[in-house]
Structures are given as C-alpha cells and as structure tokens.
Design a protein around this nucleic acid. Structure first.
Lengths: 150, 150
DNA sequence: CCCTATAGTGGGTGCCTACCCACTATTCTG
DNA sequence: CAGAATAGTGGGTAGGCACCCACTATAGGG
C-alpha cells in the first residue's frame, strides 16, 4: 500500500521514462495555458496561427490558409468570419477568380497579433522557467528537428 | 501572393520560433499516434497510465489513483470497470474501510502493460527518429526538468 | 454550351476530455 | 447514535476538435 501523502499526484516512473509522455504532457500544459488566455477574448489557438501565417507569409486564399494550418476549409471559413468581424483581416473577392476570397491582415490585425505574441511569450517564459537560456535554446533546436524531420 | 506549391503546409515562422508551439505540436503528434494504436483495442491513454501506476507503485484505492492521474474519480471508476472486465486488475473491497476499493494489477494486466509499453516505445522511436541517442537523452533530461519543475 | 471541378459556406455529427451532481454505502465525530 | 464526511458510481453536461455533406457560385475543358 502506498502512502497517499508521499506524492499523491506523482507520475508513474515508467511513464516519466517515456520521452513522448513528457513531450505530450508538457506540450499540453503549454497549449492549455495559452488557450485559456485567448479564450478570455473568445479566441482559439488557430486564430493566433491564422494571423501569424498572414503576417509572416502574406495574403492567402482561404483554402491555402486552411491547408497551411491543417484545418478543414469549412472550419477555417468560420474562423475567418470572426477575424473579419473584429476587423483584423480583410476578405476580398479575387478579381481573376471570383470564387476565391483573399485574406489580408489589417493594421488592427497586426496590432492584435503583436499582443497575442506577447501572451504566447509570457506563457513560454512560465513554462520554460526551470531552464536557463542555453538550455532553452537546446530544447528549441531539438524540438525543431522533430517538427521538421518528423 | 504566395506560391501555394512552395510549401503549402509550412508552419508560419513566427510560430516555429515559439518553443511552446513546437512542444505542443510534437507532443500532440506523439499523443495522437499512441492513442490511435490503443483505440484499436478500445483503450485510452489513461488506461495505460492506470496500469503503469499500479505496476510501478503498487495497489491504490480508486481515489488515490484518480488523484495521481489527475482524473475525476467518477471517470476513473469507469476506466476501472473496463480494466477489471478485461481481467487486468482486481477490485477488492477494503476490509478495514468497506467504502474503499483497492485496485491491484493481475498477472494478465502486467502482461498487457508490457505490450502497451512496447507500443509506446515503438511510437517513441518513430517520433524521435530524427535524433541520435545522445540528443534523445538531452531532450529527455530537459523535458523532465520542465515536468517536475513546472 | 455542357460537364466537371473547385472555392467557400452552413449545418451537422461523433469523439474525447473534463467536469458536475445526485445517490448509496460506509465511516467518523461529537 | 445523529449528523457530517468520504468512497464509489451512474448519469448527465459542455467545449473543443476534426470531420463530412450538401449547396451555391464560379471557373475551366472539351
């Protein structure tokens, strides 16, 4: 019989030895923390991602953006509704192909994106608090290899 | 206008620069891969976690196990139903406190757990494929610090 | 011009997670 | 021993996510 007071919330050692377990748990923690902040403004993580994509890579059609963010085109349309309603993106009908809607970041969108990035950095600082700058850089490099290579 | 063929699924650079973004994305990938494998047998990740906790740390009451795995006691009861139905755990009424049910891993449960660990390792090998053993160890150490320190 | 394909959209489904409450059985406290 | 607290359980709820279909509008190929 274990002592419930010793470590009532401790992770089983055999799970703690799985890198993928730690990866999914810490990742979920980070995700949840940011999601909670964004939820205060009715936003989801993919709204942030959409604004970031438009800022980094320029205007996209909805289908392009959906493909980039790995979202269903139908779901992205709903996300774009919100972003347009808040004045953060312009949705303009493509003159050459009138089926297409081109999404462009507005100045207001760029400003809001800067705030969202600041929130993301705040969460990141909290999550990575146990690591010093060199360790953070090492972690980032390793994760980047997993992200692009896997 | 971007060229849709250049990198239609590429992550926006400003997100790729966020360690927490990479953490949550790679973590979710790992989680999803294992979850899919377990789902083939009607299992969820917490079934694996429950068996691992019982194997590593000995018998628990349901409430202890729920606290350890951060699950709602009511949800853990349902999970325990399944594990008991498959013969992987014994649920015995505590003689001293007849409200309590003590969960104990059976031999069959231990055998199934070994299989589940093998599946988890297979997923891990796939996810960590881009890294060499030293890098994997470094990643594990860093994540462990985040997990225990955060 | 007809037929097929594509872009966007509205509406819906199913799964998972995380809750939460009510209820019974049992134990503990004063 | 009466009342409060606790363990487990059955049932329900709500949000997020991923997906899917039907439909309209538009474009492109033969």
């Amino acid at each position: 019989m274990i002592d419930p007071m010793a470590d009532p919330t401790g992770t089983p050692p055999s799970l703690r030895e799985l890198t993928t377990y730690l990866l999914s748990r810490t990742g979920k923690d980070a995700r949840t923390r940011l999601a909670e902040r964004l939820a205060a403004d009715g936003l989801r993580l993919y709204h942030h991602a959409a604004l970031a994509a438009l800022a980094d890579l320029g205007p996209h059609t909805q289908r392009e953006l959906a493909a980039r963010l790995r979202l269903d085109p139908s779901d992205l349309a709903k996300a774009a509704d919100l972003l347009a309603a808040r004045g953060w993106i312009d949705r303009t009908r493509d003159a050459a192909d009138r089926r297409r809607l081109t999404l462009t970041l507005t100045d207001a969108g760029r400003a809001r994106l800067a705030e969202l990035h600041a929130e993301a950095r705040a969460v990141q600082d909290a999550v990575l608090a146990p690591l010093d700058p060199a360790e953070r850089a090492a972690l980032h490099g390793l994760l980047l290899r997993l992200h692009t290579g896997g």
